[in-house]
Simulated scan of single mutants.
Amino acid sequence: MSTVLETPELTALRAAVSALGKRHAGSGTPRDYDRAGLWSEAAKLGYLGVNLPTEYGGGGGGIAELSLVLEELGAAGCPLLMMVVSPAICGTVIARFGTDDQKQQWLPGLADGTLTMAFGITEPDAGSNSHRITTTARRDPSTGDWLLTGRKVFISGVDIADATLIVGRTEDSRTGRLKPCLFIVPRDAPGFQRSQIDMELAAHEKQFELTLDDVRLPAEALVGDEDAGLLQLFAGLNPERIMTAAFAIGMGRYALTKAISYAQTRQVWKEPIGSHQAIAHPLAQAHIELELARLMMQKAAALYDAGDDLGAGEAANMAKYAAAEACVKAVDQSVHTLGGNGLTREYGLASLITAARVARIAPVSREMILNFISHQSLGLPKSY
């Protein structure tokens, strides 16, 4: 399902990824596919690192290509959530701001799937207010090492990640204020502990709370410039929003495909139920809204890949908002179309009722996006 915004190369990539997803998903549900097997094959085909530089084994593309891959895998019923984190956030940040040694150490593995990196920003007492992050990093004057202390929560895939890119804060020697910085923390670093959060959501990727108790890191664990602050952070957060939109659009398309197939064949009276406007029109509306969200996602990706961080920030937030709303509506209407069958494991839709809400909540809530648009785009005053 290509669009007028796509080049022939992107259309070919979409078709190839769609075929891969359908091969792995088969007739199962989003909980049944072999995640490790799909991750490995997608990596071998170059899909996981399609956004990373060619000199490190990547495809030399951008977030436009990577979001397309995630969308198509989701539409086939086998989304890879860690694509949002490992190549999109961590890979992008290291490619843009990492040292030569960090690039050599991490990018080839992130591109070929042999290495995975998680991302830790959310904290129990900070929520959406990144200025309240309390994970702090201080230097050991005797060695030059960094010592990290703090907590993180709702961090995806830490158990399968080789390291976690942690957002901490250091003290500005001139002002005394804390400023955000990024650190690569290996999974086996002493003092770095994780505990799994018991989630109602059924997903391959587990959620964890992290505790950092004076985790000692070498000086070279710092990614980029200590004084770059929010510039480096948002270099990863904008791709995260675009990829979340792709995740939501793929999920919505998957649900809608199931509902359309059912509406075409389910017959209660003389005609299939899809011939009735009460069934057909809500599905058509859900399709329209998913397509509109995809256009905004493609705009956001194009702006980001062109280096327009400011424009990409606005568009990425809009895309994430639109995709989340469209996904929730598509899933709800699909389940409703199937009636009781929509709640059975056989059709694989019931679990999406919970999963679809994730895109509304993470990585930033729809209310905070509306705050951003009202303040930054419309110039309205803040209420906080």
Results as ranks from 00 to 15, higher is better:
144 G>W: 05
175 T>H: 08
54 T>K: 15
261 S>K: 06
313 G>Y: 10
165 L>G: 02
154 F>Q: 15
110 L>W: 06
330 A>R: 05
20 L>E: 12
199 M>L: 12
308 D>R: 03
216 R>K: 06
178 L>N: 14
293 A>N: 12
349 L>C: 13
249 I>G: 06
384 Y>Q: 05
98 G>P: 09
212 L>K: 00
37 G>F: 03
74 G>M: 02
61 G>A: 10
258 K>R: 15
254 Y>D: 10
37 G>Q: 01
346 E>H: 09
224 G>H: 04
373 I>Q: 08
44 K>Y: 04
247 F>L: 04
217 L>D: 05
3 T>R: 04
334 S>F: 10
12 A>L: 04
246 A>F: 09
14 R>V: 09
79 P>Q: 12
240 E>I: 07
269 W>V: 00
37 G>C: 05
13 L>F: 00
208 F>H: 12
202 A>R: 07
239 P>F: 06
225 D>E: 06
159 D>K: 11
68 L>K: 08
141 P>S: 01
101 D>M: 05
299 K>C: 05
7 T>E: 04
42 A>V: 04
114 T>N: 07
54 T>D: 07
42 A>L: 02
17 V>K: 01
340 G>E: 13
16 A>N: 03
84 V>H: 13
2 S>K: 00
128 S>F: 08
142 S>Y: 06
154 F>K: 11
168 G>K: 00
